[in-house]
C-alpha cells in the first residue's frame, strides 16, 4: 500500500468539497491511476462540516481498504472557518502538506494549526473564483491547488484533461469552460507555500 496517496478534504455542506474530491478521483483516473473518492455521510446539511477522501495509487489493483482516512498525506480545507472547530491536521503526515483556502499567508495560518510541522499552503480560492466565475465556488481552485501541491497527477495532463471534461459538460456554455480553466491556472500560480 506504500504507493497510495491519501487525501482528506474538509469543507462545509454546499461548498462543493465532495464534488472536488470526486473530480480529483476522475482526473487521476483519466491519467491512468487507481482511485477512490468518497464522502463521509452523516446528518449533512448546508453549512455543516463535511469530510471527503481520496486514495490514489499508481497502477496495480489499487487500495482494497474501505475505511475513512486518519493519516492522510495531504489535507485540503475549503473553508478556513473550520480551522477553529475541526482538528484539520489530525493524523496528517508531517512530510505532507495542508492547503487552506485563505487570503492569509501560510505563516499566519500555521499559527492556527495546533503545532503542525509540515508544509502549509494557502490560496485565496474565494477571490479567484469571484474573479473568474463571478461567484464564490471555491472548489475548482482548491482542486487545482491540491494537484499542484500533491503531484498526484501530472499538471499539464490534469489541465488538458479538465478542459476536455468541461467542454463536454458545458458544451452549450463555452464561457463557463474558460472561467473554470482560468480559475485552475490562477490557483496553481497564486498558491503560497510556507
Amino acid at each position: 500500500m506504500g504507493n497510495t496517496v491519501e487525501i482528506r478534504w474538509h469543507g462545509r455542506g454546499g461548498q462543493g468539497a465532495k464534488t472536488a474530491c470526486l473530480l480529483l478521483a476522475d482526473a487521476a483516473f483519466n491519467s491512468g491511476k487507481q482511485v477512490q473518492g468518497f464522502p463521509e455521510y452523516g446528518p449533512e446539511r448546508m453549512g455543516a462540516p463535511i469530510t471527503a477522501y481520496n486514495r490514489i495509487s499508481e497502477g496495480g489493483s489499487g487500495s482494497s481498504v474501505h475505511s475513512n482516512i486518519y493519516n492522510p498525506d495531504f489535507v485540503v480545507v475549503v473553508d478556513e472557518t473550520l480551522l477553529k472547530s475541526v482538528d484539520v491536521t489530525a493524523g496528517l503526515s508531517e512530510n505532507g502538506a495542508i492547503i487552506v483556502n485563505s487570503r492569509k499567508s501560510p505563516q499566519e495560518v500555521r499559527r492556527q494549526l495546533r503545532g503542525y510541522k509540515g508544509k502549509v499552503c494557502t490560496v485565496d480560492a474565494g477571490s479567484i473564483s469571484q474573479e473568474t466565475l463571478g461567484r464564490n465556488i471555491p472548489n475548482t481552485p482548491m482542486l487545482a491547488a491540491a494537484v499542484e501541491v500533491s503531484h498526484v497527477i501530472d499538471k499539464d495532463r490534469f489541465l488538458a484533461d479538465m478542459e476536455g471534461s468541461l467542454r463536454h459538460k458545458f458544451a452549450s456554455k463555452p464561457q463557463v469552460v474558460e472561467g473554470n480553466m482560468r480559475a485552475l491556472r490562477m490557483s496553481m500560480k497564486q498558491l503560497k507555500v510556507g
Binding site: F29, V35, F38, P39, G62, H66
Partner: peptide, 12 residues
C-alpha cells in the same frame, strides 16, 4: 453492497 462505503464511493 455496503451503503455509502461502496454505493457512494467512486472506484475503478
Amino acid at each position: 453492497q455496503d451503503g455509502f462505503i461502496t454505493s457512494h464511493a467512486v472506484e475503478n
